[in-house]
Design a protein around this nucleic acid. Sequence first.
RNA 1: CCGGGCUUAGCGAAGUUUGGUAUCGCGCCUGGUUUGGGACCAGGAGACCGUGGGUUCAAGUCCCGCAGCCCGGACCA
Length: 478
Amino acid sequence: MAKEKKVEQITDMEQDFAQWYTDICLKAELVEYSSVKGFTILRPYGYAIWEHIQRIMDGEFKKTGHENVAMPVLIPESLLKKEGELVQGFAPEVAWVTMGGGEKLEERLAFRPTSETMFCDHWSRVLHSWRELPMLYNQWCSVVRWEKTTRPFLRSREFWWQEGHTIHETAEEAQKETEQQLNCYADFCENVLAMPVVKGQKTEKEKFAGAEATYAIECMMKDHKALQSATSHYFGDKFSRAYGVTFAGRDNSLQYPFQTSWGSTTRLIGAVIMTHGDNNGLVLPPQIAPIQVIVVPVAQHKPGVLEGAQDLCDRLQKAGLRAKLDQSDNSLGWKCAQYEMKGVPLRVEIGPRDLENGQCVLVRRNDGEKTVVKLEEAETAARVQLEAVHAALYQKAKQNLEEHIYAAYSLEEAKQLQQEKGGFIKTMWCGDEACELQMKEQAGMSSRCMPLRQEHLSDVCPICGKPAKTMVYWGVAY
RNA sequence: CCGGGCUUAGCGAAGUUUGGUAUCGCGCCUGGUUUGGGACCAGGAGACCGUGGGUUCAAGUCCCGCAGCCCGGACCA
């Protein structure tokens, strides 16, 4: 028995977390590797998860007045080069198109690694007056960055994302937008993905190339490594100036608008896998699960069972749940294992005995808890159980996060805590990049963020002993 | 990009040392019996052995190049 199971089995996360992750990506049929390194195929089940993320997040963006647009995938080199810092930051990982129709191009074209330049170029032509501001744009697309080491969802050479780009009349307004979108991501992670986050600002070293300030949400995975799950940048008028984006102000003077950009990617799916998954496979938060309820008939050849199961499934669908009936002739055990592996949050079992008693059995994916409910109450009961799954996932993830944040008061202590416990190590910091590099060299950790919710741990930087300015969370990141 | 390992059917492997035209399990297809936690029987299909060159009468096997995957390190959503 044990031997036959081998093929479908998923490596235990305690034994090899990286392999566990890869197993889930492949065996839950989220992705397939393509023939070009670092380019992955999102399979129907994986893409459906992304579609739910898109649908819900897009709705949130629209609530605050954002509009979707589509920008070209290719950027002329001369255009990309106009903003020095951005080019420097991205140069090592830009892919270039040098030929077109068999002829060498006059100017090479970059595959967009991000679209600030295209938005600025566009705005430089269409913006005229303060009355047209703000412009609140977003686009859903894929971008290309020539990464050296690649992993599905976490780091690939092409990835799917949304990038919001906005311009505003005043700095204050743009700063407010930056903050609003950071909060939007944090709320999305908590309310939809059941992932608690740490909101914070990136250090100078870690911030986005060309930004004046970068904010991010950091999540903690089950192996206690950190994963940056979304970012929000404030640009000031730096790009406006570089690209000549101007408008006539209220006093008729020529002004530069203030700009933001913010993004989140299919990496969120990787975050979900490593936040909620277990040794039986994927565990999906109900709101983004392609199948929320799987109806499994028991002894389906017996009279009335299949009909009863179909009936129940129809009713769940009518109630607005994404329900599916599996009437294949695979065994019950196979079906249970299969949908557990695919992370379906709720399973409903219905067999001859249930039909006799006018009931069905609801089984939660996250903890295997079974609840017997009356058939006529199935819709409500399913909804209640799905909410319970979300709440339990969030609680467990929150506990994982909170239990793995440690304060350190010396470099040695920080190093030791990281080695023994992992997670986020919080210390005070003087603000010098030299100390950041020290931490990386000595303790193997990079600064994750300066949390918006600051604490005063001590007066000095534990690395150099100089007066401390802020508290920083350090960690090993994906 | 640097170091190590790997690549044989959809998946997992044997065969490579000692060259002779590919084997097994799972999965898949057909029929039947089954179904309260990965069922069973019978029959069947499926592989130019990652790719390009070389050595040889003969290459999955030996030699050289390249690509891809995995694990570390340096770089980044």
